[in-house]
Nucleic acid binder design. Structure first.
Length: 266
DNA sequence: GCCCAGGTATAAA
DNA sequence: TTTATACATGGG
């Protein structure tokens, strides 16, 4: 069994990171977390500042995927200094990292996420993977753009996608035929990248930011006045000062973690 | 049954 | 440019 054992620091919170709502394929069992990532079934846990990942022997991939070489403690401190109100949410999210997910998976996942709840998002994505993804040992890979471009809106509707079905088709076709080059978006000027995403049917400002942040590694992309304000006002009330940090995207993830933890319905 | 979920397209003001 | 409404679906 291939395995990676790599230092991750004591503060890295694997569970918070993979269950935070920035990705939808990880699950927890007995303190270990599993998901199919980039076509491989990964099982991960942390112990004494070390991250263990079974299912791959590619340490560079693991460090990049979990963003282990970024100083999140320093970012935390910077964010709290900029907006002390976030200290409350920071307590729920200390140690959380922003994953480097596959762009196409993030694109489709966050289109599905709109006006939807996390359990149902996970279910839809799971069914799409089972039907259109390559079968691998332990499950199914996330489908390629080619595979999804071969499906019709009716096919996606049958999997419970609802009114988002044609949106998924449009996104898959754009990627497959090259009108939307996700790799290019990683380095393109941020406003051009955002504009390109907004051309996709069903992608508005919020989904665009999620794709930039979670699928394209664009942590600088976050225009706080678009919807951090919304998240902050939901938690702390109106007239909340805005952040201006280039790491506002990470702050945003903290806020979501706070909301998820405190407003989870039982 | 009713409400809502990490919004967006569309029409109207 | 800003504001209202419909949208598919299923968990709580």
């Amino acid at each position: 069994m291939s395995q990676v054992k790599t230092p991750c620091g004591e503060s890295f919170a694997l569970g918070k990171t993979v269950i935070s709502g920035q990705c939808f394929r990880w699950s927890e069992e007995n303190g270990r977390y599993s998901a199919i990532v980039s076509g491989k079934l990964l099982t991960a846990y942390t112990s004494n500042g070390t991250l263990y990942v079974y299912g791959t022997d590619d340490e560079d991939f693991v460090r990049d995927y979990f963003d282990l070489d970024r100083d999140y403690d320093a970012i935390n401190d910077e964010i709290i200094a900029l907006e002390p109100k976030l200290k409350e949410s920071e307590a729920y999210a200390r140690g959380m990292h922003i994953l480097h997910q596959e762009p196409f998976e993030a694109l489709i996942s966050f289109i599905i996420s709109q006006n939807n709840n996390i359990p149902r998002i996970r279910g839809i994505i799971s069914r799409i993977c089972e039907k259109y993804g390559e079968a691998i040992d332990g499950g199914s890979a996330f489908p390629t753009a080619k595979a999804l471009a071969s499906a019709s809106p009716e096919d996606f509707a049958a999997l419970g996608c609802g009114y988002r079905a044609p949106y998924i088709c449009d996104a898959a076709h754009r990627v497959y035929d090259g009108r939307l080059d996700l790799e290019e978006l990683k380095t393109m000027p941020i406003n051009d990248a955002r504009k390109a995403l907004l051309e996709v049917l069903g992608i508005g400002p919020k989904v665009a930011e999620c794709v930039l942040l979670y699928g394209l590694g664009r942590l600088e992309a976050f225009p706080v006045d678009v919807w951090i304000k919304r998240a902050l006002s939901e938690v702390f009330g109106k007239d909340t000062p805005l952040l201006s940090s280039p790491y506002a995207g990470i702050a945003q993830q903290y806020i979501f973690e706070f909301i998820r933890t405190n407003y989870e319905r039982h």
